[in-house]
């Protein structure tokens, strides 16, 4: 099956094609402008003072005027929130990928009683909106002594990430050929060694897809910290944002610079890895 893009029309009038393509191009350019303008205005405004934002909201600012950023950096807990987000996201991702690969490997490579049931069990978790179970989760975390503890977030994110990870990884691991594995088994390699040394190096591409699919929602999540974390020193970035957005509510330049600093890490990574991001984030929705 060939991929169909840019099929030159065969017997259309050239003028008609130009007109239609021109219209499409205008719509796409207008849309791209609408997509990027808010982000550009955010970055520009981050370098401005209140009067500047009021008088010339769209002008290119003096990029050496970094007072707003300095205030965010020195007067708020921004760095702390950033580190917390890294800790929580990193911990959850490590667990999700490890456990997800383990389950997917077992389901995909071995025939055993209950394998399809276990896969179904994971898939059921795909569509369930866990937000609605927040009351029992809150009680569970309280009973486990994990309220105001980053493990509450790491565990919930791990559980939430497992269904998609198992789904993506199982499909991929199933598609790997048997020959390598069989040869190693002939040579007397243990199952654990076959998995670790032979199969795992092959599943890296699927891990990247599953990783991106999970890392973005986990990094961006706000709901679970809102319920589980009260201690300011443990807050993640989206949650911390609500704290200092309240503090500087009329200092618009500072607000914009807080948003810019929070958005920047993921925007830069996205620009560098846009292909992987798009593939990863739409992986669940595309067969």
């Amino acid at each position: 099956m060939t991929v169909a893009t840019a099929n030159p029309p065969q017997h259309n009038s050239l003028l008609g094609t130009l007109g239609r393509d021109g219209l499409i191009q205008i719509i796409l350019i207008a849309n791209t402008f609408i997509m990027l303008a808010p982000i550009v205005i955010m970055v520009f405004s981050a370098f401005k003072t209140n009067p500047e934002i009021f008088q010339s909201p769209f002008s290119i600012p003096d990029f050496t005027h970094v007072d707003n950023f300095v205030r965010i950096w020195t007067e708020t807990n921004f760095l702390r929130y950033l580190i917390n987000s890294f800790v929580v996201t990193g911990g959850a991702m490590a667990l999700v990928l490890t456990l997800g690969t383990m389950a997917a490997y077992a389901i995909a490579r071995y025939e055993f009683f209950g394998a399809s049931f276990i896969l179904l069990f994971f898939l059921a978790g795909l569509t369930l909106p866990l937000k609605l179970a927040i009351i029992p989760l809150f009680m569970l975390m309280r009973d486990l002594g994990l309220l105001n503890n980053q493990f509450s977030l790491i565990f919930v994110y791990t559980a939430m990430g497992l269904p998609t990870t198992v789904f993506i990884m199982t499909g991929f691991i199933r598609s790997l050929p048997n020959e390598l594995e069989d040869a190693a088994r002939m040579d007397g390699a243990s199952e654990a060694r076959i998995m670790w040394a032979i199969m795992l190096p092959l599943v890296r591409p699927a891990m990247v897809i599953a990783g991106i699919q999970n890392v973005v929602p986990i990094w961006n999540d706000f709901f679970f910290p809102l319920v589980f974390i009260q201690n300011d020193n443990l807050k993640t970035l989206p949650q911390g944002l609500t704290t200092f957005m309240g503090e500087y509510s009329t200092d618009y330049g500072v607000l914009y610079s807080g948003l810019t600093l929070s958005a920047l890490p993921i925007i830069i990574i996205y620009i560098l890895l846009s292909r992987q991001f798009i593939a990863g984030m739409t992986a669940g929705a595309i067969k």
Partner: peptide, 14 residues
């Protein structure tokens, strides 16, 4: 271990 995570933090709360 992965089953335990899903059971404890998704299935049980729901």
């Amino acid at each position: 271990p992965p089953l335990a995570f899903v059971a404890l933090f998704i299935v049980y709360p729901i």
